[in-house]
Design a binder for these strands. Structure first.
Lengths: 169, 169
DNA sequence: TCTAACCTTGACGTTGAGGTAAAACATCGC
DNA sequence: GCGATGTTTTACCTCAACGTCAAGGTTAGA
C-alpha cells in the first residue's frame, strides 16, 4: 500500500478513490476504466497533481450500471454511451434549472432528452417481450421434459419388475 | 435467376432453399450463414451434387432464433450454441423415444437437457428483472421530464406575456 | 455451347471490447 | 533519499463476429 486516501486535495465532499480501488470494487480492470473514459462512457476524472485519476462513488455506480447494461442486457458500448449521455443531459438540466435564461433552448434540449429516453424505453420493451416469449417456451419445454421423466421412470420400474419376477422364477 | 427450386433432388418434403434465398429471407449474409455452420450453430446442410447448400424452413427458423438471441438479448454465439445444442438433444430424444433401449442412458441425457434448460430459464429471468427495473426508472424519468416541460411552457408564457405588455405600453 | 447469375472455398481485413507489456513518473513509509 | 507499490501513457496483441475480395466451379436458359 503506497498511498492513503488523498482526501483533502480536491474538494470537501468527493470520495476520492484511485483507479486501483475503483477497479477492485467494481470488478473491472484499470485498463477497462481508462478505456471507458477514452470512449466517453466515464467523464474525465479529476486528477491529483501527479496526474493520478480520482473517482467518486458516483463513478463507481456508473461503472456498475455500464456492466449491467453490457453483460446482462447485451447493449453495445455505443448504445450505453447514448444512454449515459442522456443521463448527463438530465443532470445538467436539473442543475441549471434555476438560472432560467434561454428557455427555448432548454425546451429543445429537453425534447431531445425525452426522445432518447422514449427510444430506450421502446427498445427495452421489445427485449422484455422477446424474453418473455422465450421464457414461456422454455417453461413449456420443461413441462415436456418432466413428463418424459415420469414416463421413463415408469418404463424402468416395469423393466425392473420383470427382471425381478424372472429372477424369482 | 439462374436456378429454380431443385425440389426433387434430395427428399420429398424438404423445402430446399439455396443459401442466397435463405440470406435474403433472414436478412443475414451468406457469409454469416457459412460462418454459423462453421461454428456449429447450424447443422451441416445437405448439398446439391455441385456442392450447393440446401436449407429447409427449419433452418430459417433457427437463423431467426439466433438473430433474436444475439441482437435482442445479447447472448454470444457460444452461449447460443449451447442452447441450440440443448434443442438438438430434445429433438433427438423426441425422435428416439420409441426404440426404448438403454433407458438409464436416456434418463441421463434428459437430466442434462433439463439442467441446461433450467439454467437458461434462470438467466432469462435475471435479464427480465433487470430490464423491468430499467424500464420503471425510465418511466419515472419521463414523468420528470414532462413535468419540466409543463413548467417551461408556463415560464415561457409568462415571459411572453410580459413582453407583450411592455410592447403595448 | 455459351453466358449470366449463383455458389464454393480460402485468405485476409475490420470493428468492438478490451488484455498485456514496457518505460517512466508518483507516493508513501522509513 | 530509497525502495516498494501504484499510476500514466504508448503501443502492440487477441478474440469474436463477421466483411470483403479473389479465383474458380455450377446451373439454367437462350
Amino acid at each position: 500500500m503506497a498511498q492513503k486516501r488523498a482526501s483533502t486535495a480536491v474538494g470537501p465532499e468527493e470520495s476520492c478513490l484511485q483507479i486501483g480501488e475503483v477497479a477492485e470494487r467494481t470488478g473491472v480492470t484499470q485498463r477497462t476504466l481508462r478505456f471507458y473514459e477514452e470512449k466517453g462512457l466515464l467523464k474525465l476524472p479529476i486528477r491529483l497533481e501527479g496526474g493520478f485519476r480520482l473517482y467518486s462513488e458516483v463513478d463507481i455506480q456508473r461503472v456498475e450500471q455500464i456492466k449491467r447494461l453490457q453483460k446482462l442486457l447485451g447493449f453495445t458500448l455505443a448504445e450505453i454511451k447514448e444512454m449515459v449521455d442522456a443521463e448527463e443531459v438530465k443532470l445538467q438540466l436539473q442543475a441549471e434549472y434555476r438560472p432560467d435564461a434561454a428557455i427555448s433552448q432548454k425546451k429543445t434540449q429537453l425534447l431531445r432528452a425525452i426522445e432518447v429516453t422514449e427510444r430506450q424505453h421502446g427498445l427495452i420493451r421489445q427485449k422484455v417481450d422477446a424474453l418473455r416469449e422465450m421464457q414461456s417456451k422454455l417453461e413449456e419445454r420443461l413441462d415436456t421434459f418432466h413428463g418424459w421423466q415420469v414416463h421413463l421412470e415408469e418404463a424402468q420400474a416395469k423393466a425392473d419388475g420383470k427382471a425381478k419376477t424372472k429372477a424369482k422364477a
